[in-house]
Design a binder for these strands. Sequence first.
DNA 1: ATCCGCGCAATGTGATCACAAATCGCGATG
DNA 2: CATCGCGATTTGTGATCACATTGCGCGGAT
Lengths: 216, 216
Amino acid sequence: MNPATRPTEIVSSAHDRVYRGLRTRIMLGQIAPGEALTLRGIGKEFEVSMTPAREAVRRLVAEGALSMSSSGRVQTPELSNERIEELAALRSLIEVELASRALPRAHIALIDRLQTINGTIAEVVRDRDAVGYIRSNLEFHRTLYLRAQAPAMLAMAETVWLQLGPTMRALYGRLRRSEAPQFHRLIIAALKAGDEPGLRLAVRSDVTQGLKMLAS
Amino acid sequence: MNPATRPTEIVSSAHDRVYRGLRTRIMLGQIAPGEALTLRGIGKEFEVSMTPAREAVRRLVAEGALSMSSSGRVQTPELSNERIEELAALRSLIEVELASRALPRAHIALIDRLQTINGTIAEVVRDRDAVGYIRSNLEFHRTLYLRAQAPAMLAMAETVWLQLGPTMRALYGRLRRSEAPQFHRLIIAALKAGDEPGLRLAVRSDVTQGLKMLAS
DNA sequence: ATCCGCGCAATGTGATCACAAATCGCGATG
DNA sequence: CATCGCGATTTGTGATCACATTGCGCGGAT
């Protein structure tokens, strides 16, 4: 409460802490679609007043991660099938481009890192850990796309992930467990071979595989 | 100041008025790149307190329309050439897809409307009206893309426009006047012919033509 | 004349308050 | 027992205030 309780430590602003906290939870699918949030509740949880809570929520609404009724009530959005198809198409468009731009810059250390992450994915799949699966899956993609050196594109991709977050959790709950990393292996193989068309196809497949089933 | 000064008229919230006001100005390039803004200044101009001004600014920062220094100072961003290239690539990716989705839904009334807007563009070009040019150009694209029935994609495209706004003005200032609507005519021709590859090419050309010269 | 400090003005941040609207629950009524 | 209505509570909004920090300008020293 008291501003002086925070010493000289490097502390990002309160609204930023709230924003990142909520964002992570949404992106990992830890908030169910349609779940309601209140400013005072958020403030209480993060131990801040309503002001930073409001700013964080407004930002998330602007990014499409939360929806706001006309009366100002805030909740995670429940996506229609058309909207999901659209967002999947956007993922496909942007992420194929990001992968393509990362390809010429991909060196062996990057591929090793991707394979390590893929191993983690196999573990969390075995443990039926849905949130862990989403987290490692995003890390796999982000690690690859960071190589593209295209921050604006990556930001767009992350915004789309964010919008799909609450729905994603519902998807991976009913997803067949074993098939998870197969497209990731194709992506890694294409990276090793320097095969751009193969990479584009593999990324497109990986991005659209689950979402198509979700929309049906 | 007093909330009671606003009668029963349907009035959108204060932060929304501020947001839309600033957004329009930025998108039309009426704010120079690097220009500084202050919350109290914005509040005074829109006759609101700092609170709605802050929320509007935060939202625009989240959308990339404004940038914020570590100390919280707000200004329109000055884009590097790499960033401009990236944003142009994003416009190309998203808008080509939008046009492609609009094509099967394009009927004669839409094409008439586009031709009318194109006529307006010819007028403002003759009058050396840079802001009017940007406005009609955006209206041309938005009119076409609305037909795609893909609100999430359109929102993404508008976000990119927003980020390019301040820089756009600088571009169209030094753009050769006569060449403006040529790609628009190609777009209309492709729509009439139902020629999808031609439409994709025309949109890509229209989107990238000016921005390439800006980045050089 | 130029450069370095110092102090004041300006700015962003977050807490709190007043208010209006919306929502929920409880009780009365059919 | 279901349904409608009304009131209390919850909730978002916007204004204001206190405070820390930043940035700038003025003045003096070299």
